[in-house]
C-alpha cells in the first residue's frame, strides 16, 4: 500500500523511469517498517511480570487460570500494568497443544480451555482434545473489561503476552501490549519523514513518511488500533473493528486495490500512456465488480464446502481406523 501511495508522486515515477532511481523502494520499505520494528525489536524488550508455562504432563488448565486471575487482581491493586507471557506447548516437532484464554467480563472470570493438538500451520488434529479436565474458570476480585472480545489462542512458536491495565471501572485486557505502541504512531512517521526530508529533500521525506503513516492508519480498520500520537499519548487506541487483520478476503482486495492504483498511476505518469480510462470506471471494472462477484460466490461456496468437508473428514477417519493400505 505504501507503494500505491508513492505512485501518486509523478516526480517519483519519472525519476524511476528516466534516471533508474530506486526511490520507490523507500515506499515499500517504510510501508512495512512499523511491523518490522515491533516483531524484530520491540517484542524482545518487554518485561513480563508473570510467565505461564503449562505442564505438558498434567495439562491442567486451573494453574493457568489462577495465574491470570492473580495478575488481574494485582493490576487492580497496584494501578500498574501487569503483563503475563504465555509459553506454548510443543509436543513434537510439528505438534503443538493449543490452549485458549478468555475473559468473561460480566462474571469476572478467567476461562482457560485446553484444546486440540495443532500443526505448525495451526490445523487441528481431529480427536486430540482432552476429554476430561479441559476447562477451568477462576473468578477475579476486579471487574474485567475485555474490549477485544475474543479468546486468545496459544498454540505455535512463541506465545503472546497479555497486559492488564487498571481503568476507572475495572481492569482492561490489553492483547500484545508491546505491539502497535511507539512503532505505530503518526508522530514517528512524521519524524522519519522530516529527517528524510532534511537529509535528502522533500520528495524523499514524503516517500518515507507517508507510507509509514498510511500503515498506521490502515491498521486502525482492524481490532487493535495504535498509539497514534506517542509520546503525547501513552495508550494504544482501539481499532474500528471493520475487518480482521487475518481475513484473506480483506487482505486480498486491499493488496489488489493497491496493485491497481500502482498500475493506473504508472500509466498515467508515463511519457506515453498505454491506455486512457476514467479512474472511476477503471476501479469499478477491476476492483468493484470482482469484489461483488467474490462476495456473491463466497457464501455459496462455503455452503457447498461444509457438508462436503464433513463427508471427506469422515472418509479420512475411516481410512485411518482401517489402517490404510
Amino acid at each position: 500500500m505504501g507503494v500505491a501511495l508513492g505512485s501518486f508522486f509523478p516526480e517519483a515515477i519519472q525519476l524511476s523511469q528516466e534516471s533508474y532511481s530506486f526511490v520507490m523502494l523507500l515506499t515499500g520499505a517504510f510501508g512495512i517498517l512499523p511491523d518490522t520494528l515491533d516483531f524484530k525489536f520491540a517484542r524482545y524488550f518487554e518485561k513480563p511480570d508473570y510467565i505461564v508455562e503449562p505442564d505438558p504432563k498434567t495439562l491442567d488448565p486451573k494453574p493457568i487460570a489462577e495465574t491470570v486471575a492473580e495478575a488481574i487482581d494485582k493490576a487492580a491493586e497496584t494501578g500498574k500494568q501487569v503483563r503475563v507471557r504465555f509459553h506454548t506447548l510443543q509436543e513434537d516437532f510439528d505438534k503443538w497443544r493449543r490452549y485458549s484464554v478468555n475473559f468473561i467480563p460480566g462474571a469476572n472470570e478467567v476461562d482457560v480451555n485446553i484444546g486440540p493438538i495443532v500443526s505448525t500451520g495451526q490445523a487441528p488434529y481431529p480427536g486430540t482434545e482432552p476429554e476430561v479436565n479441559n476447562e477451568a474458570k477462576v473468578k477475579t476480585n476486579a471487574n474485567i473489561i475485555h474490549k477485544h472480545g475474543r479468546a486468545t489462542k496459544i498454540d505455535i512458536m512463541s506465545g503472546p503476552t497479555i497486559g492488564f491495565e487498571k481503568e476507572d471501572d475495572g481492569v482492561n485486557v490489553v492483547f500484545l501490549p508491546w505491539h502497535r505502541q511507539w512503532s505505530h504512531s503518526f508522530t514517528l512517521g512524521i519524524l522519519l519523514g522530516v529527517i528524510g526530508g532534511v537529509l535528502f529533500g522533500p520528495l524523499i521525506g514524503l516517500l518515507i513518511g507517508l507510507p509509514f503513516i498510511l500503515h498506521v492508519a490502515v491498521d486502525l480498520a482492524g481490532f487493535m488500533g495504535g498509539n497514534l500520537l506517542y509520546p503525547f499519548t501513552r495508550k494504544r487506541s482501539e481499532g474500528f473493528k471493520l475487518v480482521s487483520a487475518s481475513s484473506p478476503l480483506a487482505n486480498f482486495f486491499l493488496i489488489w486495490g493497491s496493485v491497481l492504483v500502482v498500475l493506473y498511476n504508472l500509466n498515467r505518469f508515463a511519457s506515453r500512456p498505454v491506455f486512457e480510462m476514467n479512474p472511476i470506471l477503471f476501479f469499478l471494472l477491476f476492483w468493484g465488480i470482482p469484489l461483488a462477484v467474490t462476495l456473491f460466490l463466497r457464501t455459496r461456496i462455503k455452503k457447498l464446502s461444509e457438508p462436503q468437508a464433513d463427508i471427506l473428514m469422515e472418509g479420512f477417519k475411516e481410512e485411518l481406523s482401517e489402517g490404510g493400505q
Binding site: I301, A309, F316, E319
Partner: peptide, 8 residues
Amino acid sequence: KSIDFNAD
C-alpha cells in the same frame, strides 16, 4: 481414497 479438502 479421499482427500481432506473442499471447494472453499
